[in-house]
Computed example of a mutant assay.
Amino acid sequence: MTDPTSDILTQRAPRQERGRRRVDEILDAAEGLVAEVGPAAASIQEIARRAGASVGSIYHFFPTKDALFEGVRARFEEEVGGIAATMLATADEWARLDLATFVDRSLAPFIELTERRPAIFLLSVNAAGQRVPKDAAVDAAMREATLATFARRYPDVPAAELSLRVDVTRGLGDGLVALMLHADAGGRRRLLEELRRAIHGYLASYEEGAGR
């Protein structure tokens, strides 16, 4: 005797998989178009054309363009969460690196992400030009990972001082977002190099003559 429940589950799984693929195709199309023309000029009609989907299909998954852009941001945040997990898992190893390598290793995943997905900057502000809040859980995970790395690198530094250093280094990166928004690919690379120099100089001021 055939189990009807099994039949339903078997039918549902392919539909769910097709739905996930369709969402990914729509998000890919939206991200690519935003990188080319900016969020304001990215129309649902053109996103649908690039995704090979109907406009109705897009609205089925994303009721508004803002909801669609939020879906793209969520994928960025997911990648940042993965970077935080890697940092936390390798904190002991990173703590033993020389300062230049330590800074380079810390920034490398973000540089790779921003070069591969430049729309991350264009979607960091809303239509009114206001900064879109970060995902609180992902931001907390990144701060925890950075703090863990600093704690292993500077084991004799009090917790309050470590926390301050973490907030300053993170603040340096956050402060560049507005500049990144208006820069081309070459300009973004230059700004990221300046960020590396700024963080290196800041941490070197503590490590020089301190046995680190």
Rank of each mutant, 00 (worst) to 15 (best):
R196N: 07
G82V: 13
L147T: 07
L195N: 10
A204D: 09
I58S: 01
I58N: 04
L9H: 12
T149R: 12
T149L: 12
R96H: 13
L172C: 08
F62I: 00
A84P: 13
A85L: 09
R20W: 04
P4Y: 11
A137Q: 08
A210V: 05
V132T: 04
V157L: 12
S43I: 03
R196T: 05
R75W: 00
N126W: 00
G81F: 06
L97H: 13
S205P: 00
K134H: 11
W94Y: 11
I8L: 15
I44Q: 04
I26S: 05
E112N: 08
V72I: 01
T64R: 00
Y206K: 06
E194A: 09
D135G: 00
A48P: 10
V80W: 12
P158K: 05
R190L: 01
D66R: 07
P118Y: 03
A127G: 01
G175R: 01
V34R: 15
A95K: 02
V132H: 01
M142R: 09
R73Y: 03
I26M: 07
F110H: 04
R96P: 07
L195G: 02
F121L: 02
R117L: 00
A204S: 03
S6E: 12
L123A: 00
D66S: 03
T101H: 14
V55T: 14
P158H: 15
A35D: 12
V166G: 06
Y206C: 09
L123H: 02
L122S: 05
M180Q: 08
A40N: 07
E93D: 04
A48D: 03
S106A: 07
V138E: 00
A137V: 09
M180P: 00
I26R: 06
A30V: 06
D167F: 05
L162T: 04
R188W: 05
T86D: 14
P14W: 01
A119W: 06
E78V: 15
